[in-house]
Design a protein around this nucleic acid. Structure first.
Length: 428
RNA sequence: GGGGGUUUGCCCGAGUGGUUAAAGGGGGCGGACUGUAAAUCCGCUGGCUACGCCUACACAGGUUCAAAUCCUGUAGCCCCCA
């Protein structure tokens, strides 16, 4: 991909929100391979959907022949970026921070190429900040930082006007991030910083600082934030963030999240997060327009994302689980395959001998499985036709469960309504 | 300190001696429809192997054949006077 294609691509994808000097940047990119950096906050040991967008941005630069630097904020993470936050952050402990940095660094390997001519570089700003003394920092960096400019930044003003205010520590955050840019410019010849639009203030601070300290002209470009059509941040559910780590968000949940994206948001997700090409993008957009019921774009998005993040095994597991969880036939399964498919479903154990003799009363089983709070509720649910055993409706309130009702060696699958599953394990 | 009012199920809110497990609404849960959507429609919404029994209308006690409903005391909330 040539340099001009890169900006054209970012632009049709809507990934350029603000840019400090569009023509300057495009000339710079055209003049040869450049180094570009994006900072990542190590607030957790896994990346989530929001940071994925930034990683894809770096990936796009790398594919176009530039060198990406993923900067993990080991030092800045100790302070906490106040941008876009309404409250003072809790400070993370040093050990927690280190764990997070390690976890995040690990995940980046699947997004960026760390070998070859334009090998990606992974840095931690703790490396150069840890031994920087306060006095030296004030003399070298603070000196070139006019407070008036800082006060003018939107991110600072918003917090100063709020009731919680802004601590000196958080106020200083900007200096640290600005200095990162200077440092990377010096050590790696990095002249471009990208980031989310909430980073605009920090990025421009870095550009000003580079001009003052190094006399260098550097550039900044921001991408829009990934929000829903009604303005909420994407990548969050009631139960928390969507993580890239399969231990935190299973491939199934991940897949389902994207499948369920609103029509109004789906095309933006595809543009921002995937590498689906323009022609396909347009045909998906057309499909959403003309036949929204088929959810063609959502399916494609879910499939692309899950495969990219969790590999071919992840996507096939997610699709298999989706088919069964949405009412498909269960048939005869093994404990192992059920365990995989129903990984996110609560399960309980009861004694196997309950199945002997007259069998185990469904109403009791439903209570044991935790699907209903009382026997009365269980009876009612059955009467209403809302209870399913291994995806087949239970009609008889007096039904007794026996060995024949097992879906696998030891497990029965109960469902209340469309989506509430619970496993009951009959152990020995 | 004195006087008046109020307290109902997850929430709001009717009910002022018996057919009241308590109208109506909201929420929740099921079902139908659908796009694993929205809207809509229908049903359910104290417990108990249950045509019966038990527990419930702030709490404790009393009157009565019978109380969420009447009386007394206690507590919470609200208003008026000082």
């Amino acid at each position: 991909m040539s340099q001009t294609d890169l900006l054209a691509e970012l632009s049709w994808r809507g990934l350029i929100h603000q840019c400090t000097d569009q023509t300057g940047l495009s000339e710079l990119l055209a003049s040869g391979p450049q180094t570009v950096y994006i900072g990542f906050d190590p607030t957790a040991s896994s990346l989530h959907v929001g940071s994925m967008m930034q990683l894809m941005m770096l990936r796009r630069f790398q594919k176009a022949g530039h060198r990406p630097i993923a900067l993990v904020g080991g030092a800045t993470g100790m302070i906490g970026d106040p941008s876009g936050k309404s409250e003072e952050r809790n400070l993370l402990s040093a050990e927690q921070l280190q764990k997070n940095v390690d976890g995040v660094a690990q995940q980046m390997r699947q997004f960026l190429e760390f070998d070859g001519d334009q090998a990606a570089v992974l840095l931690n700003n703790y490396e150069w900040m840890q031994s920087y003394s306060y006095l030296d920092f004030l003399r070298d960096v603070g000196k070139s930082f006019p407070v008036g400019g800082m006060l003018g930044k939107e991110s600072v003003r918003a917090r100063l006007d709020s009731e919680t205010g802004l601590s000196y520590t958080e106020f200083s955050y900007m200096l640290l991030q600005a200095f990162d840019f200077v440092q990377l410019c010096r050590s790696h010849g990095c002249r471009i910083q990208a980031g989310g639009s909430d980073q605009w203030g920090n990025i421009t601070a870095g550009i000003d600082l580079a001009r003052r300290m190094l006399g260098e002209q550097v550039f900044g470009v921001t991408a829009p934030l990934l929000t829903t059509s009604d303005g909420r941040k994407m990548g969050k559910t009631e139960s928390g963030a969507i993580w890239l780590d399969p231990k935190r968000t299973s491939p199934y949940q991940f897949y389902q999240y994207w499948r369920n994206v609103e029509d109004a948001d789906v095309m933006r997700c595809i543009a921002y997060l995937t590498e689906i090409e323009k022609e396909e993008y347009e045909s998906l957009s057309e499909a959403t327009e003309s036949d929204p019921g088929r959810r063609t774009a959502q399916n494609r998005l879910a499939q692309w994302m899950t495969e990219f993040v969790h590999g071919s095994e992840g996507i096939s597991a997610a699709v298999r689980a989706s088919k069964i969880l949405f009412g498909g036939e269960i048939g005869s399964q093994t404990d192992e395959s059920l365990g995989e498919i129903f990984a996110d479903v609560p399960s309980s154990e009861v004694e196997r001998q309950l199945l002997n003799d007259d069998g185990y009363w469904v109403v009791e089983a439903l209570q044991a499985a935790g699907l209903v709070a009382s026997g009365g509720e269980a009876r009612r649910a059955i009467k209403e036709g809302g209870i399913y055993l291994n995806n087949e409706r239970v009609v008889d309130q007096q039904y007794r469960l026996g060995e024949k009702d097992l879906a696998s060696e030891t497990v029965m699958i109960f469902r209340k309504g469309k989506r509430n599953y619970a496993l009951l394990r009959f152990s020995v």
